[in-house]
Simulated assay, not measured.
Amino acid sequence: MITEGDRALWDHVPFERAGPLCPGMSREAAGTAMREADFVAGFESIGRRGPHRRQRGTFRRPRRDIWAPRYDVLAYFVDTIGLTSSSAPAVVRRR
């Protein structure tokens, strides 16, 4: 788990952006934006729904702690839409 002092706080504007991620952005653009924010990006196919391919993106900060979560940010993509949803509990502070 990221300590509070190491936690990068993201700005959030509903339906517009959460940190460097914006709804509709491509998988490639999200990967580039997250790498620029010092995250390691990984993507995997999670199947199809009708003609649309779906993918899951996981982004994590580099660390050596074997007990750390597998990801800090989780995102879902649809090939014809782009980024459809994301969850960032490790980088967004709840107020």
Rank of each mutant, 00 (worst) to 15 (best):
H12A: 09
P69R: 13
R60D: 04
G31H: 10
S86M: 15
L21Y: 05
E44P: 12
T3P: 01
A29V: 08
E16R: 12
D72P: 04
G5E: 12
I81M: 03
A37P: 05
F59N: 00
P20A: 09
T58N: 10
M34C: 10
R17V: 14
D6W: 10
G47D: 00
P20D: 03
I81Q: 00
A75E: 12
G50L: 03
R54N: 12
A30T: 08
D6V: 06
R53W: 01
T80G: 00
P23N: 01
P20R: 08
A8N: 09
A30I: 01
G42K: 08
F39E: 02
A68S: 14
L83Y: 04
R56G: 05
A37Q: 09
D38L: 06
D79P: 00
C22W: 03
P89V: 15
S86R: 04
S87V: 05
A30Q: 03
G47W: 01
G42L: 13
M25D: 02
R56K: 08
Y76Q: 05
R93Y: 11
D6Q: 08
R7K: 13
Y71N: 11
A8G: 05
R17A: 02
R35H: 11
S87W: 15
A18R: 12
I66G: 11
I66D: 14
R94W: 13
M25T: 03
M25S: 09
Q55C: 05
T58E: 03
G19L: 05
E16W: 07
S87R: 12
G24N: 07
T58S: 11
V78W: 09
T80Y: 02
G19Y: 06
G5Q: 12
S87E: 13
G5K: 15
G31A: 05
R56N: 07
S45I: 00
A90C: 07
Y71H: 13
R94F: 11
P20G: 15
T84W: 00
H12V: 15
I2D: 02
A29E: 05
R17T: 03
R60T: 10
V13L: 02
T84N: 02
R7I: 02
T32L: 03
A68I: 13
V91P: 00
A68W: 03
G24M: 03
T32I: 11
S26N: 02
E36D: 11
R95E: 14
S26E: 10
S87T: 14
F15R: 07
